[in-house]
């Protein structure tokens, strides 16, 4: 069986700068929930854009369900993969329903209108993301978190076997973080959708994902100079790997039968209080 996503020796650089992604190769089996983790500027969003066919790699290939993106029309790519980018406010005030229906643009009838099936998919997506109550409100009247759920609904309405998400829960409250990850998990299990999500929440990733891809920042790569590691969650999201990628101290704790990663505030080689500030604070002690 062909993997849902295959990256083969993908290399990318912006302009003439250093390559941000170098020789990245991996396979994501169909029905996997993969977390992409890494510090700011490590190339997470770039990788998502490359996998979505929005950005051609400088060299190397991306294959979705065995088809090379370089030989695909945008219409064909859009039938395979939907991408949820970080939320923003569009220039014009489209309603939530209009926004979600735009995911179906490719499937509109000859006169440019959505059919029954498109409306049904959009309605389901709104219900799943709990955005149906503001279906007719304009996007700019929503909070960032509500808007983010609308963009997730748009990705779901595209109804593709692969779903890519760029920090889908960054603006969400605790309840909706859990709800969105529950939703993604149920889509993965019930529909067999392959899901790739960028996240900064290591514990959500540990609880919900099967695999993790860790990207190291440009200046802080391991000796073998590979810019990434991919594997089972338990092998990748370890205190040692996280410390190396993020340059913070991380503790591992087991609560019940779940393992949690707890970043620590202070770290040798990290942030120091200046000498004077610590002197002042010592004077305050009784």
């Amino acid at each position: 069986m062909t993997a849902a996503i295959q990256a083969q020796h993908v290399t990318f650089r912006y302009g003439r700068g250093q390559p941000i992604l170098q020789d990245v190769s991996f396979e994501v089996p169909a029905g996997t929930f993969l977390a992409i983790v890494g510090p700011n500027g490590a190339g997470k969003s770039t990788l998502i854009n490359i996998l979505a066919g929005l950005l051609p790699p400088r060299s190397g290939d991306v294959l979705l369900e065995g088809t090379n993106l370089r030989s695909c029309r945008v219409q064909d790519i859009a039938r395979k993969v939907a991408v949820v980018r970080q939320e923003f406010i569009p220039a014009f005030g489209y309603s939530v329903m209009e926004t979600v229906l735009m995911a179906r643009t490719l499937h509109y009838g000859r006169l440019g209108f959505e059919g029954q099936a498109d409306q049904e998919l959009a309605r389901q997506a709104l219900e799943l993301t709990e955005t149906v109550e503001f279906a007719s409100r304009s996007l700019d009247s929503l909070s960032a978190g509500e808007r983010q759920r609308v963009f997730i609904a748009r990705g779901l309405a595209q109804n593709t076997p692969i779903l890519l998400l760029d920090e889908p829960t960054s603006f969400l409250d605790l309840k909706h973080q859990i709800k969105i990850y529950d939703l993604l998990k149920s889509i993965q299990i019930e529909k067999g959708t392959t899901i790739v999500a960028i996240t900064h929440d290591l514990n959500l990733a540990t609880q919900y994902c099967n695999q993790a891809l860790l990207l190291y920042p440009l200046g802080n790569r391991p000796a073998e100079s590979s810019c990434y590691r991919i594997g089972k969650i338990a092998d990748i999201l370890t205190p040692g790997e996280i410390e190396r990628a993020f340059d913070v101290r991380v503790f591992s704790a087991v609560v019940g039968d779940e393992r949690f990663l707890i970043p620590s505030a202070a770290r040798a080689g990290g942030l120091h209080l200046s000498g004077r500030a610590s002197q002042d604070s010592s004077q305050c002690k009784p």
Binding site: L54, R73, V74, Q75, I77, A78, R79, R85, Y94, T105
Partner: peptide, 19 residues
């Protein structure tokens, strides 16, 4: 119909299959 999603963003338009 294509102008709708293009007016949201060119990347959004591409990702839903608009050339």
């Amino acid at each position: 119909p294509q102008l709708n999603i293009i007016s949201v963003g060119p990347q959004d338009a591409r990702s839903v299959g608009v050339p």
